[in-house]
Computed example of a mutant assay.
Amino acid sequence: MIREITVEELENLENPIFVDVRSEGEYREATIPGALNLPLLNNEERAQVGTTYTQTSPKLAREEGLKFISPKLPNLVQQVEHWSEQGPLVLFCWRGGMRSKALATVLDLMGVSVYRLKGGYKAYRKTVFDFFEQNSSLKFFVLRGNTGVGKTEILTQLKRDGYPVIDLEKLANNRGSVFGDLGLGAPPSQKTFEALLYDELGKIRANGHSYLVVECESKRLGRVTLPVKFYDAMQQGTQILVYDSIPNRVNRLIKEYTEIPEAIPQIQAALLRLDKTLGQKKIEEYNSLLDGNHLANFTGNLLDYYDALYGYPNEASFDYDFSVSQCYPEHAIRELEGYLVERRDDQDGPTS
Score class of each variant (00 low, 15 high):
Gln78Lys: 14
Ile32Val: 14
Ser189Trp: 00
Ser137Arg: 11
Gly50Leu: 10
Val128His: 01
Leu340Pro: 00
Glu285Thr: 12
Glu342Asn: 13
Gly148Val: 05
Gly338Asp: 11
Val250Tyr: 01
Lys159Asn: 14
Met234Tyr: 10
Ala233His: 04
Ile333Lys: 08
Ala172Met: 04
Ser245Val: 10
Pro265Val: 14
Glu8Ser: 14
Arg343Tyr: 06
Tyr306Gly: 02
Gln266Ile: 05
Asp130His: 13
Gly176Gln: 10
Arg249Leu: 02
Gly292Val: 00
Ala269Thr: 15
Lys72Tyr: 05
Leu336Ala: 01
Asn12Thr: 14
Gly34Trp: 09
Ile154Asp: 01
Val165His: 01
Ala316Cys: 13
Pro227Cys: 10
Lys203Thr: 08
Gly338Arg: 10
Thr31Met: 01
Phe298Glu: 04
Phe129Cys: 03
Thr192Ile: 06
Arg249Ile: 00
Asn75His: 14
Thr54Gly: 03
Thr152Val: 09
His82Leu: 12
Asn43Arg: 14
Leu274Ile: 07
Gly87Asn: 14
Gln236Lys: 15
Gln326Ile: 07
Leu41Thr: 03
Gly338Cys: 09
Tyr231Ile: 07
Asp348Gly: 01
Ile2Gln: 08
Thr192Gln: 14
Leu278Tyr: 06
Tyr211His: 10
Lys59Ile: 12
Tyr121Glu: 03
Leu73Gln: 05
Leu272Trp: 08
Met98Trp: 11
Leu91Ala: 05
Arg249Cys: 01
Tyr328Ala: 09
Glu133Ile: 03
Lys170Asn: 13
Leu107Pro: 08
Thr152Gln: 11
Ile69Met: 03
Asn43Thr: 15
Tyr243Met: 10
Ser189Asn: 06
Phe193Met: 04
Ile246Phe: 05
Lys72Arg: 10
Arg273Lys: 15
Ile154Ser: 02
Glu29Asn: 09
Glu45Gly: 05
Tyr306Thr: 01
Leu212Gly: 02
Arg344Lys: 08
Leu184Pro: 00
Thr56Met: 08
Val214Thr: 13
Phe132Glu: 03
Gly180Tyr: 07
Ser323Glu: 06
Asp108Cys: 07
Gln79Val: 03
Lys255Ser: 12
Asp345Ala: 14
Phe129Ser: 13
Leu66Arg: 04
Val324Met: 08
Tyr243His: 15
Asn251His: 11
Val106Trp: 03
Pro74Asn: 08
Glu85Ile: 09
Leu184Val: 08
Gly145Ala: 12
Gly349Lys: 07
Gln79Lys: 09
Lys151Asn: 12
Arg144Val: 05
Arg95Thr: 04
Arg205Met: 11
